[in-house]
Amino acid sequence: MSGMGKNAVRLLIGSQERRGLLASIVLYLTLAGVSFVFLYPILFIISGSAKDIYDLSNPLVRWVPTKITFDNYVKAYNVLGGFRTLGVSLAVMLSTALAQTAVSALVGYGLAKYQFWGKPIFMGLLMVSFILPPQTTFLSKYVLFNNFKMIGTVYPVLLPSLLGQGLKSAIFILIFYQFFKMAPKSLDEAAFIDGAGHFTTFWRINLALAAPAIVVVFIFSFVWNWNDTYLTGTYFGTSVNTLPLMLERFVEHFRKMYPTTAENQLLRLNEGLRMAGTLLTIIPLVIIYVLVERRLIESIDRAGITGE
């Protein structure tokens, strides 16, 4: 009897080798609780966007709508501009991410593998440009692009990215720098002896091995550029419409598309519609994330961002 009791206690409290049942319960409850807080806004949007106007104003309906409506999604889809906007966003952001990744790889490689005049200065400036808020240079860049009549085109975002000065470019260059710094030198030497030039060594050997860094930088560049509405909002104006920008102007567009009159009071903009719009903007990113999640997180580990 006492032996059984001892076993039960051990099962509950655990021993040095095994976690007890109690500790496990606490651990998983904590993880579940934190996950809930993480997902709370998303659950909130999903639930809110499926509610019709009656459910939204009914204080008794909290999470589960009495009747699921797809009306909000249809309207939000129209207001956001549908697949046209999605196409524009994808085209602009994929090309920006591609440019940023390619140039960051080149610059990171040059800094990691070569010794040349002024390199410490460049490294220092790179670090400074990491802390420098984009707003400090934003004003005069606006004037600069305005002088070249580039406001309202994609160039104010694409050109700096092509020259390593895009959004958070410093981080991307540092990721590649760190990665190439760790890559074994012996491969380069072997390639050199076999008669490979500098560029071949970069392209065929180092870049081929740099898949983790490329994945991380490309995904982050894409996502961060996609989500930035501060700079793009001012540079693109109203002529290049990406999804997040359309979301920002959701209210305005909605009023234009569905004007309120005395008869259709129910057409008023409600929270359900806004949440449906928010959900539709997030969905493309979530799809991409689900597709690349495993590879992305493995790559972050292997790309050596943490310094080893």
Binding site: L106, V107, G110, Y114, F122, L125, L163, G164, I173, F202
Partner: peptide
């Protein structure tokens, strides 16, 4: 080496 870093220098 400078050539690799050149785009960044110009951009900077």
């Amino acid at each position: 080496g400078l050539l690799f870093v050149l785009p960044w220098i110009v951009g900077f």
